[in-house]
Design a protein around this nucleic acid. Sequence first.
DNA 1: CCGTATCCTAGGCGATACTG
DNA 2: CAGTATCGCCTAGGATACGG
Lengths: 123, 123
Amino acid sequence: MSQYEHTCMIRGDGGQTLRAILDQICNKWTLLVVATLDQGTLRFTDLAQQIPGISQRMLTLTLRNLERDGLVNRKVYAEVPPRVEYTLTPVGKSLIPPALALAGWAIEHVPHIEASRAAYRSR
Amino acid sequence: MSQYEHTCMIRGDGGQTLRAILDQICNKWTLLVVATLDQGTLRFTDLAQQIPGISQRMLTLTLRNLERDGLVNRKVYAEVPPRVEYTLTPVGKSLIPPALALAGWAIEHVPHIEASRAAYRSR
DNA sequence: CCGTATCCTAGGCGATACTG
DNA sequence: CAGTATCGCCTAGGATACGG
């Protein structure tokens, strides 16, 4: 069955709108940070600990981009030592269902894809 | 409201499964090719014409990856001049709904994101 | 018509070291 | 604690030219 009537959402402007967002979403850490923040407000160190493998640099960069795009709120407390809390905005939270849809698809089809890749290699 | 119970799908293995798929999906042309192929079987040249800006090289690469992953079927006709037809497999078609979900989110929130970026720049 | 082969470049990302 | 500052690699992807 074709969903062609709706794929204009993807193809609309030559895919530019979607791709601009996708570039932002699909970098290495963004979705992971958003998913982690879904449990609620977290500090920088909390995030660093809960996201294995992320460097301070990449965590900072990812959070700054999310803040700039209005998906994450950053609250700095004037204390010593400093405390910074990150929270998803409503827009940030709204990203999660579609992300879950994609993640669900991925998980569901990984076996098929890997089998297909294996078959492809041994041709 | 938190969807934290479900974000394990994203965070599951440190995000590796999802990211492996995402890397494949979120490159510059894949979703565009899949969305275009949703209208049915198309030849190489058809795709090239319907996807503005894509080069022969990138179209070939994208199609090869999709074929390798079992999302697209490639059928070569032994004719002169050659004819090659590409068709979405059922798995390929199944990618479209979640992709549409993400595209819908993107289109819906572009205004907010752009406004947030503008505000961020002029701070 | 349907590709491959080369060459090239921007920028994403990691590692490491340093600071208010 | 929560970041910057540098450097250097690596690969996605564009331009161009050629081939069955």
